[in-house]
Amino acid sequence: MDNIVGQRSALTWAVNFAVIFMVVLWTVPTFGLLVSSFRDRDQITTSGWWKSLVSSEQNIIVRSQEPEKNVKDGDLYVLEGNIFDATSGEVRAFGVNSREPMAFLPGAVAEMAKGRTMTVAENGDYRITSVEEMTGTRGIRIFATSVTPPKFTLDNYERVLFSEGIWRSFINTFTVTIPATVIPILIAAFAAYALAWMEFPGRALLVAAIVGLLVVPLQMALIPLLRLHNSIGIGKEYLGIWLAHTGFGLPLAIYLLRNYIAGLPREIIESARVDGATDFEIFRRIILPLSFPALASFAIFQFLWVWNDLLVATVFLGNTEEQLVMTGRLRELLGSRGGDWEILAASAFVSIAVPLLVFFTMQRYLVRGLLAGSVKGG
């Protein structure tokens, strides 16, 4: 007989495999994003993050010093320098034009126009000679194929936190998220207790309306609600976006908390009423302590939703430099710096660091809160 109590299901392996697959599916890209955030632009464009611990080969085009800086050495005029500047690397081949960028091995002498010659050593030192004095302020192009050792840097985070305006947006996001999480919890807790344990006319209709609001797209209310905020003078202010997130989050909060509170043992509440406790005392001393898993579960959902929100923040807060949130800032970076992947990687990881911390801190309450109300008290 299948599915006997105490016997492991034959599909346990499938469940375990699915869980492992989902963990890997989300963990690997996140780890790759973290690694990329510590790499410079050249390394990101030439190799994937999984090759971050090995040397990478890349074709580079650099310019020498200004020809006017040449110095006379005997009968020749010489211009010297290093193609790697402050970095290090190994030259595999070099060239003097784009048609043959790897025509010469390191140390070879390449003939150029106007009687000039060029040689590039393995360490990147170049030497350009000319029988005539070189003039001009634009450097001579040097084509090279180099092998660059692995390199990790904190410059990306320094630019993000102090040069790209992310820190200001980070603070703005906290300013929006914390009140937008706390306010609906406070309101929903009172409403959930009333709908679960207080008798009054129309209670069933209110519960049905709350369930109906769960499926209403918030986009339908954006423009009417914004017009209302503008008419009462709270448009494009923090108070307006706090109230907007509160309104959009209340249906789920009330529904979740009501199911949990309704599942609490009736004997506890009836005993408290027999002892003369008021509804407020029952709520404050009994309901709130016992409902902490459900409160924490909704807090996780609300915090993650508000932190990652872009639509509501754009509509109700705007895009000014003083009010731009993290998602808006990342959108600006993506729009104006589509090629600066190292900046985008660092910015994205700064953005997800706080939600990850909140989730892993309170995850033990998540399942208990989601299963709230599945078993009613007798």
Rank of each mutant, 00 (worst) to 15 (best):
A272P: 07
R266N: 00
L257F: 07
L334K: 14
T327R: 04
A244M: 05
F292Y: 07
A313G: 12
T314Q: 14
L239M: 14
W307H: 01
G263E: 03
W242E: 09
D279G: 12
L295M: 10
R337I: 09
R285P: 12
I261M: 12
G247P: 02
R331I: 10
E270P: 04
P293E: 08
G339Q: 15
M326T: 11
A277W: 12
E322S: 09
A272V: 09
A313T: 15
L256N: 11
I261L: 11
G335F: 12
K236Q: 13
Y255T: 07
L290F: 08
R284K: 12
E321K: 15
L324Q: 09
W242M: 03
E270N: 11
M326A: 13
Q323W: 09
N319H: 14
L334P: 12
S291R: 02
L295Y: 01
A244P: 02
G235E: 06
T327I: 05
T320W: 04
D275C: 13
L288C: 03
I282P: 07
L264Y: 08
L304Y: 06
P251H: 04
D279F: 09
I269D: 06
G339C: 09
A296M: 13
Q302T: 15
L250I: 02
L304E: 10
F298Q: 06
A277S: 13
I232W: 03
R331T: 10
N308K: 04
I254W: 06
W341I: 15
E342C: 12
G249C: 03
Y255P: 00
V315H: 09
A345M: 15
E267M: 07
M326K: 09
F283Q: 04
T246K: 02
A299V: 08
A294T: 10
A346I: 04
M326V: 15
M326S: 14
I241R: 00
L239C: 14
T246D: 04
S336D: 15
Y260W: 13
E237K: 13
T327D: 08
I269P: 00
G338P: 04
I282W: 06
